[in-house]
Simulated scan of single mutants.
Amino acid sequence: MANMTRESAAILTAAGIPVSIEGGYEAYVPKTRIVLFEAGQAVVHGLSFDEALKTITLNPAKLLGIDARVGSIEKGKDADLVLFDGDPFEYLTKVKMVFIDGEMVAEND
Results as ranks from 00 to 15, higher is better:
residue 52 A to R: 10
residue 71 G to I: 01
residue 41 Q to S: 12
residue 38 E to F: 05
residue 94 K to A: 13
residue 101 D to E: 12
residue 67 D to R: 00
residue 108 N to S: 08
residue 27 A to M: 08
residue 97 M to E: 15
residue 47 L to N: 03
residue 106 A to I: 08
residue 66 I to T: 04
residue 28 Y to V: 07
residue 66 I to Q: 01
residue 33 R to T: 11
residue 15 A to P: 03
residue 83 L to D: 06
residue 55 T to C: 06
residue 4 M to N: 09
residue 3 N to I: 04
residue 25 Y to R: 08
residue 21 I to F: 07
residue 101 D to W: 02
residue 3 N to D: 15
residue 97 M to A: 14
residue 59 N to V: 01
residue 58 L to I: 02
residue 20 S to V: 00
residue 95 V to K: 02
residue 1 M to Y: 11
residue 55 T to D: 05
residue 27 A to Y: 08
residue 84 F to E: 00
residue 49 F to S: 09
residue 19 V to P: 01
residue 18 P to G: 02
residue 105 V to E: 14
residue 85 D to P: 05
residue 56 I to T: 07
residue 61 A to E: 02
residue 3 N to V: 03
residue 37 F to Y: 12
residue 74 E to C: 10
residue 96 K to T: 08
residue 105 V to G: 13
residue 87 D to W: 06
residue 23 G to P: 03
residue 105 V to M: 12
residue 13 T to R: 05
residue 76 G to I: 05
residue 68 A to K: 13
residue 95 V to T: 11
residue 101 D to Q: 14
residue 16 G to D: 07
residue 80 D to F: 04
residue 79 A to F: 06
residue 105 V to Q: 14
residue 30 P to H: 08
residue 21 I to C: 12
residue 103 E to R: 15
residue 87 D to E: 08
residue 26 E to W: 10
residue 27 A to T: 08
residue 12 L to P: 04
residue 93 T to K: 07
residue 91 Y to I: 10
residue 13 T to K: 08
residue 108 N to Q: 07
residue 87 D to L: 08
residue 93 T to V: 05
residue 92 L to D: 10
residue 103 E to V: 15
residue 46 G to V: 04
residue 24 G to S: 04
residue 34 I to R: 05
residue 88 P to K: 14
residue 58 L to N: 02
residue 12 L to E: 02
residue 106 A to P: 05
residue 10 A to H: 08
residue 72 S to I: 00
residue 54 K to Y: 02
residue 9 A to W: 09
residue 2 A to K: 14
residue 108 N to Y: 10
residue 65 G to E: 00
residue 107 E to H: 15
residue 102 G to F: 10
residue 24 G to Y: 04
residue 76 G to Q: 03
residue 71 G to N: 00
residue 19 V to W: 04
residue 95 V to D: 07
residue 87 D to R: 06
residue 81 L to K: 10
residue 60 P to W: 04
residue 52 A to L: 11
residue 7 E to M: 07
residue 56 I to M: 14
residue 9 A to Y: 08
residue 93 T to Q: 09
residue 8 S to C: 10
residue 109 D to P: 15
residue 45 H to Y: 15
residue 92 L to E: 12
residue 98 V to S: 06
residue 70 V to K: 12
residue 32 T to R: 14
residue 100 I to V: 15
residue 13 T to E: 12
residue 66 I to F: 00
residue 84 F to Y: 12
residue 105 V to T: 15
residue 42 A to C: 10
residue 86 G to N: 11
residue 54 K to Q: 05
residue 57 T to V: 08
residue 41 Q to H: 11
residue 100 I to Q: 13
residue 23 G to C: 05
residue 18 P to W: 01
residue 43 V to F: 12
residue 8 S to E: 06
residue 96 K to Y: 06
residue 43 V to L: 14
residue 61 A to S: 07
residue 59 N to Q: 01
residue 101 D to H: 10
residue 100 I to N: 13
residue 16 G to M: 12
